[in-house]
């Protein structure tokens, strides 16, 4: 009888989280997608605002995917703009040169996917040096990679060289951005809380120790780099078809710095932090636009102050409840209860 009662009480205690948790995401996704489609069809939000929303989405994809490497795996990659460039060029070349003019809208997701796959392949190549080099030296490898991509693109005349690439139709619409953003957040969030994700975290904490604990560090690194660069490529493809013009200079180290700022503003190793960081940074840049060039003076200053007074960013190493798996929430709750019952044992 008492076990029945305990089970009932447990159910009652978790009821709120269970429902709130289970229903929030489906409702949010459907409502969001419906809103985006409605905006796209009826256009009751003006185009400037739509463009900002599109940039917010693209920046979320970039930030979340970079957070997998820089936050969860604890490496310092500065080459994210390079992956983005690969995705942008692959997707744009496909839509401009290969796809028939009539079927652009239908084939657009394919182009984006191809851009992501291209970037993923390059990410695989960058993962190989990460077996031997770590920390600052790996940062330099990724930096060198970013510069190499830019330099190669500038030297290939078939893709426009330094002049860049023109002729993309405006295929990036709000629903597509929403779809890819949701997909990237979903995939990376699930990856991080999976068995593989624990491997990623263990590399951040101590690579040699995790190797000894039979984590296949090479495999983990390859998958992390491939997934991260895949989504960077997707963001690149979306970016190219939102702006309808790309050139190699857009994807230089300054772009990487932008993404890094969003990651560290939001906080490392936090999905919700990445989203917050990307949203705040993108919108703040737009709000401060009247300041002209002084906003570019103000932003880095803010970053420095943030690092001094809150070095882990807004959400660093913490996660919003909505992104934490139920399993972890329950464990945490039980642990707290235990601590309350026997405070001496844990101290």
């Amino acid at each position: 009888m008492s076990s029945f009662k305990a089970a009932y009480h447990a159910l009652l205690a978790h009821w709120h989280t269970l429902t709130g948790y289970k229903l929030f995401w489906p409702v949010f996704i459907i409502a969001g997608l419906a809103f985006c489609v409605a905006v796209d069809t009826y256009g009751f939000v003006d185009l400037y605002l739509q463009l900002i929303l599109i940039y917010v989405g693209i920046n979320i994809i970039l930030t979340v995917s970079l957070n997998l490497i820089n936050g969860y795996m604890g490496e310092f990659s500065v080459g994210h703009a390079g992956f983005m460039a690969v995705g942008a060029y692959v997707a744009s070349l496909l839509t401009v040169h290969s796809f028939p003019a009539g079927a652009q809208n239908l084939l657009f997701p394919l182009a984006i996917l191809a851009g992501g796959l291209g970037a993923a392949f390059v990410g695989f190549l960058v993962a190989i040096p990460s077996f031997k080099t770590r920390g600052d030296y790996l940062a330099i490898v990724t930096l060198a990679f970013c510069m190499i991509v830019k330099s190669v693109l500038e030297n290939i005349d078939a893709v426009g060289g330094p002049r860049g690439l023109l002729g993309m139709e405006k295929l990036t619409t709000l629903p597509w951005v929403f779809f890819w953003t949701a997909l990237s957040v979903w995939v990376i969030r699930n990856l991080v809380y999976s068995n593989f994700g624990r491997g990623v975290l263990s590399i951040r904490e101590d690579e040699i120790a995790s190797d000894l604990m039979s984590v296949n560090t090479r495999q983990v690194k390859i998958i992390a780099f491939v997934v991260s660069s895949f989504f960077a490529g997707i963001a690149g493809g979306l970016f190219a078809h939102a702006l309808q013009f790309i050139n190699p200079r857009m994807f230089d180290i300054l772009k990487s710095t932008d993404i890094l700022i969003m990651v560290y503003l939001g906080g490392i190793a936090s999905i919700s932090g990445s989203i917050i960081g990307a949203v705040i940074y993108t919108i703040l840049l737009e709000i401060l636009r009247p300041l002209g060039i002084w906003r570019m003076v103000f932003m880095p200053l803010m970053l420095v102050l943030l690092m001094i007074y809150r070095p882990r960013g807004i959400m660093g190493m913490k996660e919003a409840r909505l992104f934490t798996p139920l399993r972890d929430l329950t464990t945490e709750k039980l642990w707290r209860q235990k601590k309350k019952e026997a405070p001496d044992a844990s101290a």
């Binding site: 310092f76 560290y264 570019m296 200053l301």
Partner: peptide, 15 residues
């Protein structure tokens, strides 16, 4: 953490 210092340096450079 060392990364905070690196980010700060990037920020100072941009500034």
């Amino acid at each position: 953490p060392r990364v905070s210092a690196i980010i700060t340096a990037l920020g100072v450079g941009l500034f």
